[in-house]
């Protein structure tokens, strides 16, 4: 830790290309700065009062054409830099193939992280090297920002929004995790570690985790304890839609629209049941807004997802 760093290690795919852009910008900027400062210095010395330098008339082209020249030159150069820098973002638009989803919830002054297998971590994130990870970010109170300097990435975590960040670690090691958006008194204490392990070490790490049940079993327990089973379970007399095989498929609604049952739909139905009432059912479901915190919501959604998708995968496959 003690040695003086100027450039951080490049520990992700993005780090390489971002550093490339950074270096390009540094070179261009230092050239322009040297040009300007150099000229100011040279003119100051050469044309100081009383110096013998010749101060003849300026050539005709010197005035207007030069002006037009450097306007177009700077304009062209800056647009070129923009195109070069923006090209990296278009690559982001391509959706990932198979990305494991890790849920991270920002809470005043800590990061709560849940792996799909149910492993929970506070201010720590263990990742396998070489894999694409989709971080699903939520906030429970104020705006935070999930910032890993070694990956050259950060993403604000805004309450009321689910934001995603795709990270592709390429180098094993331990890297700093900061909260970059001011979030209150202990904003500077909201620091964590990102540990990138090799595939085998990551598998070992997963296995030695305390046998925390995974998300869907925890969701199952919540499904029963919070009374969802009372209406949505097979034997109940109450007319409520059965949830087996619902996830992923189209759901006909009472007002004629059909929506696909994705995470957002499940979440909306829990928090605002009267928003999208399923066709043929009465809007009698109570709203759970306030009764479930972020982690429980994620677990319930995982459980309903695990009740089987109507489309491709077989029943009960882990996502």
């Amino acid at each position: 830790m003690g040695e003086i760093e100027i450039i951080l290690p490049q520990a992700s795919v993005e780090a390489g290309s971002t550093d490339g852009k950074l270096l390009g910008l540094i070179i261009i900027s230092s050239l322009i700065t040297l040009l300007v400062a150099g000229l100011v210095g040279i003119f100051a010395i050469r044309y100081r009062k009383g110096s013998k330098a010749s101060r003849g008339r300026l050539p005709a082209w010197f005035d207007s054409d030069l002006e037009l020249g450097w306007t177009l030159a700077t304009g062209g150069l800056f647009v070129a830099i923009f195109a070069w820098a923006a090209s990296q973002d278009f690559a982001l638009a391509v959706p990932p193939q198979r990305a494991t989803e890790v849920h991270a919830v920002g809470k005043q002054w800590m990061w709560k992280i849940e792996h799909p297998g149910g492993q929970r971590e506070i201010n720590e994130l263990h990742l396998p090297v070489g894999e694409t990870i989709d971080l699903v970010l939520n906030s429970q109170d104020v705006i935070h920002s999930f910032y890993i300097p070694a990956f050259r990435l950060k993403q604000d975590v805004v309450p009321g929004h689910t934001t995603r960040m795709r990270i592709r670690p390429t180098r094993t090691g331990t890297y700093r995790l900061f909260c970059a958006e001011y979030c209150g008194s202990e904003h500077s204490a909201m620091i964590g570690r990102v540990v990138v392990l090799s595939k085998e070490a990551y598998a070992d790490w997963l296995s030695i985790q305390p046998e925390g049940d995974d998300l869907s079993t925890e969701g199952r327990q919540l499904f029963v304890s919070r009374g969802c089973a009372g209406c949505h379970e097979g034997s109940s007399k109450v007319r409520a839609p059965r949830l087996e095989g619902v996830f992923g498929g189209p759901v006909p609604l009472a007002d004629g629209r059909t929506v696909t049952a994705d995470d957002a739909y499940i979440r909306d139905s829990i928090l605002q049941p009267k928003k999208d009432v399923v066709a043929g059912f009465a809007p009698i479901m109570p709203s759970f807004a306030g009764a479930l915190d972020e982690g429980e919501l994620v677990a319930l959604t995982a459980y309903i997802r695990s009740l089987g998708r109507r489309d491709a995968t077989a029943t009960g496959g882990t996502p």
Binding site: E14, S17, T18, K21, L22, L25, I28, S29, I32, T33, V36, A37, V40, F78, I81, F82, W84, A85, A86, Q88, D89, S145, Y147, P149, R152, L153, K154, A180, E181
Partner: peptide
Amino acid sequence: FVGLFTMGGLTGLFLASVPVDLHMHDT
């Protein structure tokens, strides 16, 4: 002013390009 404003302006270009800003924002 001329010298320092040039450097200030050019570092603004760093922050205007999105990938570099993802690293440099709020730092």
